[in-house]
C-alpha cells in the first residue's frame, strides 16, 4: 500500500503523561512523526493534539485505534490533506541592514504576502503562514541574505467534517 500524509487529531483530557503515552505508540512501531502540536480545543479543558505522519492507510488506522485506546483520550481521528484545512507558521529573522540595502528583499516580502512582525536596528522578523511549500519558498528566497534564524511550527489543522466531541461528552453526562 502506498504511503500518504495523514493528519491525526486527538481530543484528550489534559493529563501529565499523555504526551509520553502517545509518543510511545509511535516509538514502539518505529514510526517517524512529520510534526506534532498541542493546544486547547474548542471545548473547555479538552486538549487537541495534531500529529502529521506519512504512512500507509492500514497503518494509520491501527495507530489511531491504539491512541484512542488510551484512557485519557476522548476521541482520535485521521484525515487526508483533502479532508482538512491546514497551515503552518514560520518566522524568519534577518539582519536589518539588508532591509534597507537590498531592494530585492522588500520585493520578496511583498510577493510572498509575509508580514513584518518587528523591526529593530539590528534585525527584523518576518512571519508567514501557509502551506509547507510557501514557507519553504520564502526560506529559500531569503537564505542568500543570510537568515539569522528560521523556525517553522508544526501543522495545525481543522477538519471539513464535524468532530462531534461535545456529543460524546454529553452522552457520558447523560448516561452517568
Amino acid at each position: 500500500m502506498e504511503k500518504k500524509t495523514y493528519t491525526i487529531s486527538v481530543y484528550s483530557e489534559n493529563n501529565v503523561g499523555l504526551l509520553n503515552r502517545i509518543s510511545a505508540i509511535f516509538l514502539k512501531r518505529h514510526i517517524n512523526l512529520e510534526s506534532f502540536s498541542t493546544s486547547e480545543s474548542e471545548i473547555p479543558n479538552v486538549f487537541r493534539f495534531v500529529i502529521v505522519i506519512n504512512i500507509t492507510p492500514d497503518k494509520v488506522h491501527k495507530i489511531v485505534q491504539q491512541i484512542e485506546k488510551q484512557i485519557d483520550v476522548i476521541k482520535a481521528y485521521y484525515h487526508t490533506d483533502e479532508e482538512t484545512i491546514f497551515q503552518e507558521n514560520a518566522l524568519y529573522k534577518v539582519k536589518s541592514s539588508f532591509l534597507f540595502e537590498e531592494r530585492q528583499i522588500q520585493n520578496i516580502i511583498k510577493a510572498s504576502h509575509a508580514t513584518i512582525v518587528t523591526v529593530s536596528p539590528e534585525f527584523f522578523v518576518i512571519e508567514k503562514t501557509g502551506f509547507r511549500e510557501e514557507t519553504e519558498q520564502l526560506r529559500k528566497d531569503l537564505s542568500p541574505f543570510g537568515l539569522l534564524q528560521f523556525v517553522r511550527s508544526g501543522r495545525i489543522s481543522v477538519t471539513k467534517a464535524k468532530m462531534g466531541i461535545s456529543e460524546i461528552l454529553n452522552t457520558f453526562k447523560n448516561n452517568n
Partner: peptide, 11 residues
C-alpha cells in the same frame, strides 16, 4: 472520603 469510580468520560 472514599467513593468508588463508576465511569470516566474519556473511556
Amino acid at each position: 472520603n472514599y467513593v468508588k469510580c463508576t465511569g470516566i468520560r474519556s473511556y
